[in-house]
């Protein structure tokens, strides 16, 4: 049986205490733990010493829908809760429902999903395997096995909710040693497989806020081999607003699982905005998405295949919104 390495455990009852504990060396924050535990078991965090669990902190669970339509989802709310809440936009419920498996959705949280570690075929590997290959950059080694010529880590942003939240223009609330702050979720991510979040390790995500979004049409499409369990190897979140004459007034298209951060596709968005939303402009926007992302061979299936699927998935997503 694969077991966890020896660890210390802290379950503070306030966010402030949690923030303080996270400042210690080797401290890792655990929400549902469905990403953290397998990574720890695979010995992916050799410096890990302490698990800081948020389970005792009050008020981190629940969904509020305010009168103006603003949605506030507390960080520890499980994905299953999101799936079941009929007040929420369909796109969110479907994206949450596409994560992992039913059991993991009962355990995994929205905050954990948004902060889920980046993944790579050379990183998320068991122990003997890892020892058989030289460690990659993210595992403390000298080079990236996927793009040896480069000096960066290309591990893949694999959250299903992240692209959707970016498409919906959500904001996240963070608490850290310097107090609370709120940033657009797009700014939470950095296209760097190692330092994939812009927040500091002490900062805790407490809430996601989706502002009023009446009239926004949004959808999410996920590429994976099986209908369950598998991580996305491409995710497309699209949100558009159309006026009465079917002119697109706002468009946000976001790709997941093709880079180390969810990627906005401004080239596609620009094609749509200000023009009639029809098969032609959709096809043009889809084509424009092809150029942006260059996934590498570090997830299931080939990078060529995933690249080829980008315009297909973007087009299908946009068609659904027409």
């Amino acid at each position: 049986m694969l077991r966890l390495p020896p660890l210390r455990y802290e379950a503070p009852s306030t966010l402030e205490e949690a923030v303080a504990l996270l400042a210690e060396d080797g401290a890792l924050l655990a929400a549902g733990g469905s990403d953290l535990v397998p990574n720890l078991k695979r010995r992916q965090y050799p410096t890990a010493r302490t698990i800081v669990s948020l389970r005792r902190v009050a008020d981190l669970v629940g969904i509020r829908v305010e009168s103006d339509g603003t949605i506030r989802i507390a960080a520890l709310t499980t994905l299953a809760t999101v799936v079941e809440d009929s007040r929420l936009p369909k796109v969110l419920r479907e994206a949450a429902g596409a994560v992992a498996s039913p059991q993991i959705r009962n355990q995994g949280t929205v905050g954990g999903n948004l902060c889920v570690d980046t993944r790579c075929d050379w990183l998320n590997v068991p122990d003997t395997w890892r020892q058989a290959a030289e460690p990659c950059l993210k595992a403390g080694g000298e080079m990236c096995w996927v793009a040896p010529a480069k000096k960066d880590c290309w591990a893949v942003s694999s959250s299903d909710l992240a692209p959707v939240m970016v498409a919906l223009g959500a904001e996240v609330q963070l608490i850290g040693p310097d107090g609370r702050r709120s940033i657009p979720i797009e700014q939470l991510y950095r296209n760097d497989g190692m330092a994939y979040l812009t927040k500091t390790t002490e900062e805790i995500l407490t809430e996601v806020v989706i502002g009023p979004h009446a009239g926004l049409r949004a959808t999410y499409r996920k590429l994976r081999r099986r209908g369950s369990i598998d991580f996305p190897i491409l995710g497309v979140a699209a949100a558009v607003r159309l006026d009465d004459a079917d002119i697109c007034t706002e468009a946000r298209i976001v790709l997941g699982a093709v880079a180390s951060a969810p990627l906005r596709v401004p080239t596609s968005e620009e094609v749509l905005v200000g023009r009639t939303y029809n098969a032609e402009t959709i096809a043009e926007a889809a084509e424009a998405a092809r150029k942006l992302a260059r996934p590498l061979n570090n997830t299931d299936l080939t990078s060529r295949y995933r690249t080829r699927m980008i315009p297909v998935f973007v087009r299908r997503a946009l068609e659904e919104l027409g």
């Binding site: 075929d121 590997v125 068991p126 395997w129 058989a132 290959a133 081999r225 099986r226 209908g227 369950s228 369990i229 598998d230 991580f231 299931d300």
Partner: peptide
């Protein structure tokens, strides 16, 4: 090369009930 492409039940794809 000689490295298994993914010795796990996540990387090795057994059909689920949905397939």
């Amino acid at each position: 090369g000689a490295l298994h492409s993914g010795p796990s039940l996540l990387d090795y794809k057994i059909p689920t009930v949905l397939e």
